[in-house]
């Protein structure tokens, strides 16, 4: 099966702001998007995720392999996502955060527990399983968000400045985590960042913002 994420001739309007993109990310590729603030990086990710819907005046298509994704609701796209603020369910425990996507995929309870335990050990949060997510430290939150985005084996991974809230030491450690995860999985990964060090450490290719368009 073809595991390429592809955007063709996108012209997407939000009020008077126009977002244009045309690129693809192949399986196993880790592509960084480098662009100035206000260029629409997060909006682009939200469009890919289905959180921003295409309207009549918008043009272009979004594909995953041969399947067109534009009209697929966000909850059926099977894409892993780590937003800038991690998007954790702060009133739930660490384990419940990880269980959530597995419950939605009707993974049997025993298998679910097993997977959660494995993921917690993997990211070093086994002692934090029953702690409310809001009480985790910054680095722990980041690891939990990443583990949750990958626990249901998504078709692609989208990261929106996932290290911006971490201090330099934790950033380096977190990059290591992400790289280890991604090397094990041959899925497309799209990373939005401001930091050249993130690009150097993680990406295999860079999409640039030229003349108002994301191209690469």
């Amino acid at each position: 099966m073809n595991h390429t994420l592809r955007i063709e001739g996108l012209r997407f309007w939000i009020d008077t702001f126009r977002l244009e993109a045309d690129f693809k990310v192949s399986a196993g590729e880790r592509v960084a998007i480098l662009a100035p603030s206000g260029s629409g990086k997060t909006t682009l990710l939200r469009f890919i995720l289905g959180l921003e819907q295409k309207k009549n005046q918008d043009e272009g298509e979004l594909y995953f392999g041969d399947q067109r994704l534009d009209s697929v609701p966000s909850w059926k796209r099977n894409l892993g996502y780590v937003p800038q603020d991690y998007g954790l369910f702060i009133n739930e425990t660490t384990a419940k955060n990880l269980e959530f996507p597995l419950e939605l995929r009707h993974v049997p309870s025993a298998a679910r527990q097993e997977k959660v335990k494995e993921a917690l050990t993997r990211v070093g949060l086994e002692n934090r399983a029953e702690l409310r997510a809001s009480l985790l430290s910054g680095g722990e939150k980041q690891r939990l968000a990443l583990a949750r985005a990958l626990i249901f084996e998504p078709a692609a991974l989208l990261l929106d400045e996932p290290f911006s809230a971490l201090d330099p030491e934790l950033r380096a450690e977190a990059r290591g985590w992400v790289l280890d995860f991604l090397k094990e999985r041959s899925i497309p990964c799209l990373l939005v960042t401001h930091d050249a060090a993130d690009v150097a450490a993680l990406s295999t290719r860079v999409i640039r913002y030229e003349n108002g368009m994301f191209k690469g």
Partner: peptide
């Protein structure tokens, strides 16, 4: 924010 992430999780 949580709702949007939940949607991306399925």
């Amino acid at each position: 924010g949580e709702i949007e992430v939940a949607q991306t999780l399925g």
